[in-house]
Amino acid sequence: MVDNKQSWKAWLYLSPAIVLLLVFTAWPIVNTVLMSLLEGYNNLGAVGGQTFNFGIGNFTYVLQYKYFLQCLANTCLLCVITVPISTILALLIAVCLNAIKPLQRLLQTIFFLPYVTNSIAIGMVFAAMFTMIPGAMPGVYDSVGIINNVLGVFGIDPINWANTGSGYWENIAVVSVYIVWNALPFKILVLLGGLQGINKQYYDAAKVDGTSRTRTFLRITVPLLSPMLAYVVITSFIGGFKEYSSIVGIFGADMGPSGNPRVLNTMVGFIYDALATEAQGRASAAALILFGIIFIVTLINLYVSKKKTHY
């Protein structure tokens, strides 16, 4: 412990960090709560001397607003689809990567590349892969896109994934593929690290006892990897609820295929839109609702993983 007479020194040394945290983290949180509780608050009005009633009007407005509920549904849907798929895929890839000896480093690097690539750029590439290029006449296409060409090999007719008139579920499918692909590298990295930390003797012991590969994977690898899996699942749920840039990457700032804008908007997108339209009160309310959802989901995650995780 620092001597009481000396403690001002400690505070002095801590002050740069404390000041920055107060200004850029603590105050915005407090301010967000304040704004959310002032009904119909907007910056322009506040500057103009307008006064706002204190109340929960922003929350009730947002929660009854159909468009907000659409954004909420989109966000939850993407989370529920992509988190399990990307986690299971990452686990399988990590196990395979861990099992092979030659070229392991090279493959590790290849699988990690998406992580260091700009997500908007990746989104544009994905858009190009899924987009059909219209021809001279309506209903005729110069190109149906790489994905449709590949599906064509298996005798599947071209699907309108992301063009004008494309369906909601097709759009969700495209975004999900993109999110999963984008989420894989980090998860593989974490899980591979976890796998390499598992003592090889457990596998020797299992081998001597005649354990099948599947059983070894389910009864030994997965439980021993559970701390890493819990970490990956929790962080990807948090990331999933903040989903925004992937949709911008594929569909642009319209947040939907042309002719049907904003149909794929997410919670974060809604908040940005509200801010842009000078509805800071509603944006704050939406942000706090998002915070509440993430908080509850994380608590549930922690509760479940505490029961299932072996540390």
Binding site: Q201, Y202, K207, P223
Partner: peptide, 18 residues
Amino acid sequence: PENRGVGLVFQNYALYPH
């Protein structure tokens, strides 16, 4: 190994911790 019918005790026991 599994078809030999051996029991093996490892130096650090290799008990499954979970």
